[in-house]
């Protein structure tokens, strides 16, 4: 039995993300959208919007739809669940969600 070690990458300081917005980080050459919901909740999903193939999800507006916390793509307004990466309007456009944690003042991401 092998123990998989999770590889965490520090992407920025907490203060680099304005509350209720996102930023795009390059993690192992992958475009990852990292969001700060309220003061201290963080989420990460792929930043590339499958419908447009453009790296824009980090620039979407955050919000809630029912109980789900979502980001809306700025291009075609699809909503993505920040916990799962699921696209609410069309499952075929879903993206991957990644792990995030705060270590000291740093926000760290681990690719899933």
């Amino acid at each position: 039995m092998t123990t998989e070690t999770i590889e965490w990458t520090a992407v920025c300081a907490i203060d680099n993300i304005l509350p209720n917005t996102g930023v795009c980080a390059l993690v192992n050459n992958r475009h990852v959208a990292v969001f700060r919901v309220g003061q201290n909740q963080f989420h990460a999903i792929d930043s590339i919007d499958p419908q447009s193939n453009a790296s824009v999800l980090s620039r979407g507006l955050l919000g809630s739809l029912g109980d789900r916390v979502v980001v809306a793509s700025p291009l075609y307004k699809n909503h993505f669940d920040l916990h799962t990466g699921e696209c609410l309007e069309n499952a075929a456009y879903s993206v991957r969600a990644h792990a995030v944690r705060v270590a000291g003042e740093k926000v760290e991401v681990a690719l899933s």
Binding site: P19, N20, T21, R59, G60, L62
Partner: peptide
């Protein structure tokens, strides 16, 4: 301040987003 987090991408980046971002 907080107002920035309310703006959609166009108002946040003060430009019109195009299909390629």
């Amino acid at each position: 301040g907080e107002l920035a987090s309310l703006q959609d991408s166009n108002d946040y980046f003060l430009g019109n987003i195009q299909k390629d971002g």
